[in-house]
Nucleic acid binder design. Structure first.
Lengths: 210, 210
DNA sequence: ATAATAAGTGAATCATTATTCATTTCTTGT
DNA sequence: ACAAGAAATGAATAATGATTCACTTATTAT
């Protein structure tokens, strides 16, 4: 006998896989899933198209993984903000700001994650992650209710509304039809946008004017 | 000379166009845009595929028209509710209920209009209509502010949040992954869903607990 | 060096559908 | 009935892009 899988080869495979993922990621970051055709990704990663299929079941699977990675990153940031200092309201507010700010900083990827039309496989992932966001918010809302920082409410439902309100508010500004045109939103406009979102959402949660 | 376009023919053309539109509409209603291939639509309408192209520039154009028709219907209903009796808050609440109730009554079409992945041409239409909803809400909010039924706020932004909150709250329940499975949401669940949405939204607008 | 095995290649293939267009059928006015 | 035009037809084509697979190259152990 002769060839036996070795550490070196295992590493190399992992590296290649990672490189493909990174290049595809980059492509999505700059032009959305739509612009990440296998041929292009392969070229960018310096491998043959066939090689992609040695590392991923299908394009949808590759995309799903990109989606997961990118969204998990955002979910983590939100979770982080929710775990920060202050009472429930302050933490929820911080999380909303975090979410919006990051989306505006990386508009193309944000749009891809929030609103770009994608294959069913990836859409399923999106649905899952929207729930992940909602769950984090829900937890904080429940804490708020317990500590009397928030009035009694359907925490799950409120959290879904939060996700929806913020996503919708960003879809317009993020959508390629808008952000594709030269000038991005001015700093001022962005700030106002975030302020109004936060204002509405916190009111929706607390039922009190600030 | 001989053939000259006549009233009869003009009528027939209009009829055919309408029939194509209706059949495509029906198809979308029962299975989303995805399931409305030209071949199927043609068969359903009892015409050849080529005939579709005598009446519509392209599939996307046909879809865009279906989208417009269907959404305009919903926008009108919302506008109607907003023009009803009561103060601004009551009317906004009625509009939200109307929107949610209709979506839950026709879940597949609602999902197609709100969240189904569609071609860019149709996506553009969707963006436009989301703004149409927002504009109607915005108007009512401004009236509410003037009559002191609502506190001062960024009406445009609040209206966008309304649209987002309600859409997001419905996407989960409407999505084929959910509603595709046999049993639709129970009456009770639906009512609770609508109540919580309305509650959050009205609080977001008024800043007061009810 | 060689055999055994795996990884990599990329042109060719496949799959899916929208769209076209040469041909046929239908309408109309004389 | 006939000719001029318009509308309808649907099989063939086009376009897009994912996926395959026969073949080449690389790695390992003896």
């Amino acid at each position: 006998m002769a060839y036996r899988e070795t550490e070196k080869m295992r590493n190399r495979k992992v590296q290649t896989r990672k490189r493909i993922l990174e290049c595809a990621f980059e492509r999505v970051t700059s032009g959305g899933f739509r612009s990440a055709q296998i041929t292009h990704v392969a070229k960018a990663a310096g491998v043959a198209t066939g090689t992609i299929y040695r590392h991923f079941e299908s394009k949808e699977e590759l995309f799903a993984e990109i989606f997961r990675t990118a969204t998990q990153r955002e979910v983590d940031k939100v979770a982080e903000a929710l775990a920060g200092p202050g009472d429930a309201v302050a933490r929820l507010e911080a999380a909303l700001r975090q979410f919006a700010a990051r989306a505006l900083r990386g508009p193309t990827m944000a749009w891809s994650l929030i609103a770009e039309p994608v294959d069913p496989r990836v859409e399923a992932e999106r649905l899952l992650y929207r729930q992940a966001y909602a769950e984090h918010f829900e937890k904080a809302i429940n804490e708020g209710i317990e500590s009397d920082a928030l009035p009694t409410q359907n925490a799950r439902q409120s959290s879904t509304c939060l996700v929806g309100a913020i996503a919708e508010s960003l879809v317009g500004p993020l959508s390629p039809a808008q952000s594709g045109n030269s000038q991005a939103l001015s700093q001022t406009t962005q700030t106002q946008l975030v302020e109004s979102i936060v204002c509405f959402c916190i009111q929706g949660l607390t039922g009190t004017r600030r």
